[in-house]
Write a protein that binds this DNA or RNA. Structure first.
Length: 486
DNA sequence: AGCCTTTCGT
């Protein structure tokens, strides 16, 4: 409930100062009219841009996302516009969270005088989406829908496929599945095309394979399915299924494709091969690779990446080196990503030396390791119980300006636990928090289960208490127990 | 034309 109260306030605080500065700028420039024309223009261009972009929080939270066309300086018109939208969104979120007996949020929204635009609706719904957690999900769904309905009733605003997707995503996160499906029907009734994004949201909420298959079937056959930017609906569906690791369904869809006489392209081959590999069907994997070649498709960056992972996990460093050289010869210069997947494979195969060799080789070839690459190398050291080397690399990455992420901290904490240095493990948790890297449940789980296994029950309890105090994952506390036996 | 590929042991 605390987090509900917070979600408006945080945005307001952050942007009030910008708004004050922005308003001053308008007053003193003597070009208020121009600024307003500019704002309309920007609203249009931003609407287009954001309509076509995805709404993953990752995209939005990327630093500098809102600044990327501010070369004229800090107070560009575009910036002012964006800050104004954020300010209004903050106000709306504040009004929404006051909703309850004795307070009519819809009325308050209507009286607020805030002009509704596509970007504003997006910002508000994203604000709600970001704040959904276990404790407040019912309320978030309710408030989100209240705002969705209210904004759809404004005379100057009409919902789009994207705003539908956002509210559907909120319902999905809040586990309001029936309401989500009702919205799909409403969307279709109102003439919106169902897109690859619609499919993606729906398929992600299908827990059981039977249900997922029904959804897949519906989309493949649907006449109104707008599958662009994919070449055909099969690839659009396959791509989503890969992202949610539904490998068996991928096989099934590929079968449907073949039955319908739809020839695979390079994207299809890459996805199917990836699925076969993940399912451990290496023979079929190689058969597909041959078939792909015979059909006239040459491997691309993605194919090589899969091949390198296969070679790594199969502990074939020499073949991998040959493949890397071959890639260079045919004009695909291996990138950090390729070395990283190869190293990840080798690390899982337990070949630390080879892993280290390719890490050095990569740098020799002028590729600089990124966070993921450092994390993979650190993991390799920790699995081999080379804790000092792991620590050394962790320090090095910070010096080189690569900020450790939640994966990096998790493996470091695990390493300290394995080495029996529980005090260091706990201070790592504090360190990540102080550096603004929020621990997720898996990080707490690492620490708690190792502490418990070592018989340090009061320390484990202390970590749990700390976690619950932060208002996070309280509903998952019982899940810790599951790992105790391991 | 676009679309795809990497890191939290199970």
């Amino acid at each position: 409930m605390n987090s509900v109260a917070l979600f408006g306030a945080r945005i307001v605080n952050k942007f009030t100062c910008f708004l004050v500065i922005s308003r001053k700028f308008c007053d003193h420039s003597g070009h208020v009219g121009e600024v307003h024309d500019g704002l309309n223009c920007i609203e249009e261009s931003l609407t287009k841009e954001w309509e076509s972009s995805d709404f993953d929080s990752a995209t939005v939270e990327k630093p500098g996302f809102y600044d990327h066309e501010c070369s004229e300086g800090h107070f560009s018109v575009r910036r002012i516009f964006v800050d104004n939208v954020k300010f209004d969104a903050g106000r709306i979120l504040e009004i929404l969270q006051r909703d309850g007996p004795g307070f009519d949020a819809k009325l308050a929204l209507s009286e607020s005088g805030i002009r509704v635009s596509g970007i504003l609706v997006r910002e508000v719904l994203l604000g709600i989406l970001r704040n959904v957690d276990y404790a407040n999900k019912t309320r978030c769904a309710k408030l989100g829908y209240k705002f969705f309905v209210w904004s759809g009733q404004r005379e100057n605003f009409r919902h789009t496929a994207n705003t539908y997707h956002l509210i559907m995503k909120i319902f999905a996160e809040c586990e309001e599945f029936k309401a989500m499906w009702r919205l799909v029907d409403e969307m279709i009734e109102n003439g919106f095309p169902t897109t690859a994004r619609t499919f993606n949201i729906l398929i992600c909420t299908c827990g059981e394979a039977g249900l997922a298959r029904k959804v897949v079937e519906r989309f493949i056959k649907s006449k109104t399915f707008n599958y662009r930017p994919f070449k055909h609906s099969y690839n659009a569906v396959l791509y989503s299924l890969l992202a949610i690791k539904q490998y068996r369904l991928i096989e099934w869809v590929y079968q449907q494709m073949s039955d319908e006489g739809h020839p695979p392209d390079i994207l299809t081959y890459n996805i199917i091969m990836c699925a076969k590999y993940r399912l451990g069907k290496l023979e079929q994997f190689h058969r597909l690779l041959d078939e792909m070649g015979r059909s006239g498709f040459s491997p691309d960056f993605h194919t090589y990446n899969i091949l390198l992972h296969v070679l790594g996990k199969g502990d074939k460093p020499l073949a991998a080196l040959n493949l890397l050289n071959h890639m260079k010869e045919v004009g695909f210069d291996p990138r950090v990503l390729h070395f990283t997947t190869l190293m990840d494979g080798l690390s899982r195969a337990g070949n630390l030396e080879a892993c280290q060799y390719f890490f050095d080789e990569m740098i020799n070839r002028g590729c600089m390791p990124d966070v993921v690459c450092y994390t993979v190398m650190i993991t390799s050291y920790i699995v081999a119980e080379e804790f000092e080397k792991a620590q050394g690399l962790f320090d090095e990455m910070i010096v080189k300006g690569q900020l450790p992420n939640v994966f990096t901290y998790n493996i470091m904490i695990r390493g300290f636990c394995m080495a029996g240095k529980f005090d260091k493990a706990c201070s790592m948790l504090k360190e990540m928090e102080s550096r603004g890297c929020n621990p997720n449940f898996l990080v707490y789980n690492t620490l708690v289960s190792y502490l418990r296994n070592a018989g340090k029950l009061s320390e484990a309890h202390e970590v749990i208490r700390h976690m619950v105090e932060k208002g996070k994952y309280a509903h998952l506390v019982s899940k810790f127990r599951r790992y105790r036996r391991c």
